[in-house]
């Protein structure tokens, strides 16, 4: 049976861990997780010892290209796309963020990067069930098998 993993921000968000169908919800504080969103932050994150680069894009721009993706691949940095970053935005900003995420995910697929789709929940109401995250992956432009893979696969060093 497939096991699903998620990354959340606080202990409170793990309240419904088993109910939502996850094998384990990893705490962001336990990982070397760095937030992207600008060219400087992305470059710095992929060049230093980082496990996960969270949301390399922002509503204002893509800031993620094949060069950054290649360095991330060489240094075994997982690129994570979070639901929380989308939920925190509204209107046009959310539309732009979603579009940039789709483009960045396309680059990740082309460059064969390690990708995760996570909730990165701030509280218990920010968490979503495993198959909803698969749905989010499909919304971001993945096929269903790819979306299942990015939610269920946990990369070396994360657990």
């Amino acid at each position: 049976m497939r096991k699903y993993y998620d990354i959340v921000q606080c202990e409170e968000a793990r309240k419904h861990e088993k109910k939502l169908g996850f094998e384990k919800m990893l705490l962001a504080s336990e990982l070397r997780l760095k937030k992207g969103g600008s060219l400087e932050a992305n470059r710095k994150a992929v060049r230093t010892k980082t496990d996960v680069l969270l949301d390399p894009v922002s509503p204002t721009g893509l800031f993620f290209d094949t060069a950054v993706a290649q360095v991330a691949k060489d240094n075994n940095v997982v690129i994570a796309f979070s639901l929380n970053s989308l939920l925190s935005l509204k209107g046009v900003q959310r539309v732009k963020m979603l579009a940039n995420m789709q483009k960045a995910l396309g680059i990740c697929l082309k460059m064969k990067n390690e990708v995760m789709v996570i909730s990165h929940a701030e509280d218990e109401y920010g968490a979503r069930d495993a198959l909803s995250l698969v749905g989010l992956g499909v919304l971001l432009g993945l096929s269903k098998p790819q979306a299942l893979w990015v939610v269920s696969n946990v990369y070396e060093g994360l657990v």
């Binding site: 989308l86 109401y125 698969v134 749905g135 989010l136 499909v138």
Partner: peptide, 23 residues
Amino acid sequence: LEFIRGVLCFLTEVNNKKAFIHI
């Protein structure tokens, strides 16, 4: 189906109270 699952992730509140949908 998968698309709808993804869309329902974006439900964050019901009647101005925090909530989410668990399928």
